[in-house]
Design a protein around this nucleic acid. Structure first.
Lengths: 190, 190
DNA sequence: CAGGGCTGGTTCATTCATTGAACTTACTCC
DNA sequence: GGAGTAAGTTCAATGAATGAACCAGCCCTG
């Protein structure tokens, strides 16, 4: 009913009917139009964890191929990911998180923190630390010791006590080792 | 493929097939199973804004009645909302945010902040302030002056420069006035 | 240079969810 | 008794997700 004031910020991709929240004049609704579809936030999560290749997303998420292709395209058009040919192996593509995608980290972190202390019991699956000081991040992705939001690239991810130590897919296995966020994931050396 | 380790935290409602992320061993995925469906986060947002009644959600969201009923039920079963008869008018119900629902505020705030500076242009639609000191909240819902997460009930919401000053539905009109979050919304005195 | 494998998709039929309109039920007020 | 409100349910139609199968380009090997 209100005037929608659509996409002022560079993303004007026509959303398929029924996916937008036309009457909602609200930046949460704007965000959800891009990132609120099924699987989308998990794709972004994986991208922040360092996953870059189509097939890695595929096996790690267990998502239908068509849906993955659609989500990668939406995210690329929205400027959250950038698609580019892989430097060393020209037949491969990479989907790399942009600054815009990195800016989603606090939201993902907050959602994860909520999921953990709401449904997760006591054992976290992954721990996140500020590399500079080793302190574990707070629920908003901030460092309680340094007192500010930690840039994504300065976050170290470690396996928590609740994580399956022997996952079946190679991507999960690669994600068992402590690693920085955004650091490209390699599954090749099996 | 991994063992799912489902719902340890008091919510064991059977999710309809195809809504869960069965292979995802991750608290973000757990959160999204509850809160990741279409409309759900906007319902929670409205609940935090003070909306409590079925018909108010309905007119404000422009959501199909069946979907609203389903979302309210899911959220109630998940312990995010609590359904109870209205004290003064026994035929009415109220859906009130629980502590668990209030804990979603940082995530919603982070999503909204992302939506604003990604797609919103320059004019925010709503401003959020720490009541105690009047400072505008940071992107994670923290108070930059006091330096901590502001409890939801201490957040004041004000109309921003981008907000339509004459919305057509009574709920949007009631939300024009500065108000604290969680404060019950009244649309009766028209 | 034929064959096989890898990567990154597309196409398709089936199933599931969302939509909007119409209908229902219970209760109150006049 | 009739109208009105609150909070739904039911239904047919549409649209999206799923999983399996198919495809095309590139590279390596024999």
């Amino acid at each position: 009913m209100n005037e929608p004031a659509l996409g002022k910020g560079g993303y004007s991709g026509a959303m398929a009917l029924g996916k937008d929240y036309a009457t909602q004049e609200c930046s949460i609704a704007r965000a959800l139009e891009v990132v609120g579809e099924r699987w989308t936030l998990l794709v972004v999560r994986d991208a922040l964890y360092g996953v870059r290749r189509y097939n890695d997303f595929l096996v790690h998420l267990g998502i239908p191929r068509a849906v993955l292709a659609a989500r990668l395209q939406t995210l690329t058009e929205a400027g959250v990911l950038e698609k580019r040919p892989c430097a060393d192996a020209p037949r491969r593509h990479e989907y790399v998180v942009t600054e815009r995608g990195r800016a989603l980290w606090p939201a993902l972190r907050a959602l994860g923190a909520w999921g953990l202390d709401t449904f997760g019991g006591t054992a976290p699956l992954r721990l996140f630390r500020h590399v500079a000081c080793g302190t574990e991040l707070g629920a908003a992705g901030e460092c309680p010791a340094c007192g500010g939001l930690v840039p994504v690239e300065d976050v170290e991810m470690l396996p928590g006590p609740g994580l399956d130590p022997e996952p079946s897919d190679p991507v999960s296995r690669a994600l068992l080792a402590p690693r920085r966020l955004l650091q490209p994931l390699t599954t090749d050396p099996v």
